[in-house]
Simulated scan of single mutants.
Amino acid sequence: MATRTTFLAERLFDGGGGAAATDRLVHVDEGRILAIEPAEGRRPANAITVPILAPGFIDLQINGAGDALFNDTPDARTIATIAAAARKGGTAHLLPTYITAPGTGFTQALAAVGDAVRAGVPGILGVHLEGPFLSPARPGIHPPDAIRPLTAPDCDLICDAAPLMRLVTLAPERQDPALLKRLIASGVRVFAGHSEASDAQMAAAADAGLIGATHLFNAMPPLAGRQPGIVGAVLTEPGLFAGIIADAIHVAPRNLSLAARLMPERLCLVTDAMPTLAGKNTQFTLMGRPIRLVGNRLEGTDGTLAGAHLSMIEAVRNMMALADVSPGRAIAMASANPARALGLERELGAISPGYRASMTLLDDSFAVRQVMVDGRLFAAAD
């Protein structure tokens, strides 16, 4: 149950991307941020002192954590396990991500998220459906025989499930334009991913309402002189967001830096995490394929990347250390930017009066201490 809480933030990053304010009292009541004021030397006896207070991190793409995989057992219990494990890395809110499965297997994911929300699992914003409406030319670790175009019955199922269906990743060049428009008109956010879309095809999809790309630079053609493709479109089009996996495995540090410089307010850090995150096992099976953790790299037997072994706070620290991104901007990429991508910028992604009280509490070394989700405070280990 949400209770009244006061934080004394030695450094407060409000989500705007700038430098931290110092010594601020943040008052929380009934799951909302009530007020923020300078401490001016005051240290209320009941205040929780926090070295660094940041908006709650929002992970748009997480497949599993805590030895649980959403595709394996798509139910509310699995979602609760993933959410609890993700909080160890500072995640307050997330989209459980269901990848390509045969037929209409994604309906299980929709039902599971609905059950989790009704059960009060903290931090669940909806589901991210990554596939099966992808390009067979860019399957990545997704099972190629299950990849297919979007159909009218699929559209019926997904549109009826809005707003639980928050985000769909698809290959826009493989879809019926009318169905794509209908999907977007229902309120579903649509990203391009596992796609070979040309610059012209991306422009047409953006005109229809597509708003971004999934795991920028991965499962898409590279930027070329005469073929900007998805990468060129996302880097230069002001209306497009992008998720990016900042583990220095999926994307080279120079490309992390390039994306951060060109789209500082549109780049969203994601984990693309798998069961090994905050788990005990170093191997698991994904759609019948054995996956193993080698160092910090998750791969199939053929070496194909299979998600990531990454937490949100690690992604934030990597952007600071590897891409020369300021702390305030890196934090915004984990909070304010994904909130905007989901259309939730008036309630999440910032520490401001009236916003939902979802915050990530850090120490001076940017390690996670606690996470608050809608006024409920969790230890990172919970």
Rank of each mutant, 00 (worst) to 15 (best):
K88D: 09
R261Q: 14
V371N: 01
I33K: 03
V50W: 05
L60A: 06
I52M: 08
Q108P: 03
A76V: 13
P264Y: 05
F241V: 13
R261S: 13
D59K: 12
E314M: 08
A341C: 14
A161E: 05
R266W: 06
L377F: 03
A47Y: 05
A162T: 13
C155E: 12
N281P: 05
K88T: 11
A248L: 11
Q201W: 07
E130V: 14
A84S: 10
D176M: 12
E265C: 07
A54W: 01
E30A: 15
L298H: 03
E347L: 08
N255Y: 15
P143K: 14
R118M: 10
L167T: 07
V127D: 02
T6I: 11
A306K: 10
R226L: 05
F57W: 08
L210C: 05
E10A: 15
R118N: 14
S135Q: 07
H128D: 05
R189Y: 05
N63I: 04
G279A: 08
V294E: 14
H142Y: 09
P290V: 12
A9T: 11
F378W: 12
K88Y: 12
F378P: 03
A152V: 15
V121F: 07
G114P: 09
L269E: 02
G307Y: 03
R174F: 01
A260Y: 11
P74I: 05
I230R: 13
M320T: 11
A213C: 14
G343Y: 14
A2R: 09
A76C: 15
L134D: 02
F378A: 09
I249K: 07
I141Y: 01
L322I: 08
I351Y: 00
R329V: 06
V325T: 13
H27C: 04
D23R: 09
L164S: 07
I141M: 09
D247Q: 07
A83I: 11
Q227V: 08
T151D: 02
D156E: 15
L12D: 00
A330L: 15
G123P: 06
R148P: 04
N218D: 04
T91A: 06
P55I: 14
P177W: 09
P74R: 03
A273F: 00
D176P: 05
A146E: 10
D324L: 15
R166W: 14
L322F: 10
A68N: 00
L262I: 09
L305G: 08
A112C: 13
V26K: 07
L110F: 02
R138M: 11
D59M: 11
M263T: 07
A252S: 13
H250L: 08
K280I: 12
Y98Q: 13
I124H: 06
V373Y: 04
N318H: 12
R42N: 12
G123D: 01
G295L: 07
T151E: 04
N337Y: 00
M319N: 06
L240Q: 06
D176T: 10
P139V: 12
G17F: 13
G343V: 15
V270R: 02
A92N: 03
R138C: 04
L150G: 03
F191G: 00
G123F: 07
M165Y: 01
F241N: 03
A35S: 13
A206V: 12
V121G: 01
G56Y: 04
R4T: 15
A213I: 09
P149D: 03
L348F: 08
I331S: 02
T49M: 14
A35Q: 08
L95P: 04
P353Y: 10
F366K: 00
